[in-house]
Computed example of a mutant assay.
Amino acid sequence: MSTPHEEFDLPGTDLARAAYRLAEESEEAYLFNHSVRTYLFARGIGHDQGLRPDEDYDDELLFLGCVLHDLGLTEDGEGGQRFEVAGADAAARFLRGHGVAEDRVEVVWDAIALHTSPGIAGRKRPEIALVHLGSGADVLGLSVDRLPASLVHAARRRLPRLDLTEAITAAIVEDAKADPRKAPPLTFPSLLVAEYAPEHAGPTWRQLTATPDPVG
């Protein structure tokens, strides 16, 4: 049976393969499959936009941003930050440990930290914007109609969704319940906590702003 690298022509550099192994070894199957599908869908959306790999964007950086974008939901992402930032920090540690130049580390960090930030990630360079779009396509179905149906079917067959929606929601919420610092007010994790575990919800906007005016 072919591997995902062979079937989908994933980047084959030593660094890309090391990142793939890190995600495969540290993430549960539902999360690892999502991470790889995110790349496939990101690359497909880029093609739909007329973007050419390694001409209009760095394909290795896109792959690294996609395959590592949910490290914040693994043990590598511990540290009291929301999962997007924890994952970006974990990816940066991994890349620096492999001698990656700091300007390339910064692109991957931004791509991961901003992948749940609509209206921001899309305004950044293609590698960052496409991680956001690929993740949104896989989790929410956004822009899936811009992808070839054959790609979507092949990705979901080889890398099944399993219980992605329920499992990733539970992982984010449980992280925040164990450490409230992982769901700071007005963030995506805090939105999930307010909906799925309201007894653990942090302060609302009204509560945050209900403070005396500073003395002038």
Rank of each mutant, 00 (worst) to 15 (best):
F94W: 09
G97Y: 06
T165M: 11
S150R: 14
D103L: 01
L192H: 03
V173Y: 04
D138C: 04
L192V: 00
G80D: 07
G87Q: 08
D163K: 11
G141K: 08
H132A: 02
R123M: 12
L162Y: 08
A129I: 08
A176D: 00
V108R: 07
A194E: 15
A91S: 12
V144P: 01
I168M: 14
L130H: 02
P185F: 10
P160Q: 01
A183M: 09
L147W: 03
D76L: 15
F94Q: 02
I128D: 00
E102L: 05
E106W: 06
L162T: 01
R157Y: 08
S117K: 13
G79N: 13
L95Y: 05
D179G: 04
A171R: 14
V108Q: 09
V107C: 04
H115I: 02
L191V: 02
T187G: 00
A111M: 12
H153S: 15
E106H: 11
E84S: 04
V100R: 14
D76W: 12
V152Y: 07
P118M: 13
Y196E: 15
P160W: 02
L142K: 11
K124E: 15
E127W: 05
G122A: 09
V193L: 09
Q81R: 13
L114I: 01
A194G: 12
A178Q: 13
P118W: 10
P118V: 02
T165I: 12
D89G: 01
S135A: 15
L159H: 04
G119W: 10
P198E: 12
A113Y: 06
I112M: 04
I120K: 10
G134W: 06
V85R: 06
R158C: 06
A90P: 03
E166S: 10
E75A: 15
A155L: 08
A111F: 11
S143I: 03
P160R: 00
A149C: 00
R104N: 11
E195S: 10
S135D: 14
T74M: 05
V139G: 02
R157A: 13
I128E: 10
E106M: 07
V105R: 07
V193S: 03
S117V: 02
L133T: 01
L186F: 13
R104Y: 09
G136C: 02
P198H: 07
A155W: 03
D138M: 00
E195L: 14
A113K: 09
A171C: 04
K182I: 01
L147V: 10
V108L: 11
A154N: 08
K124D: 14
P148D: 15
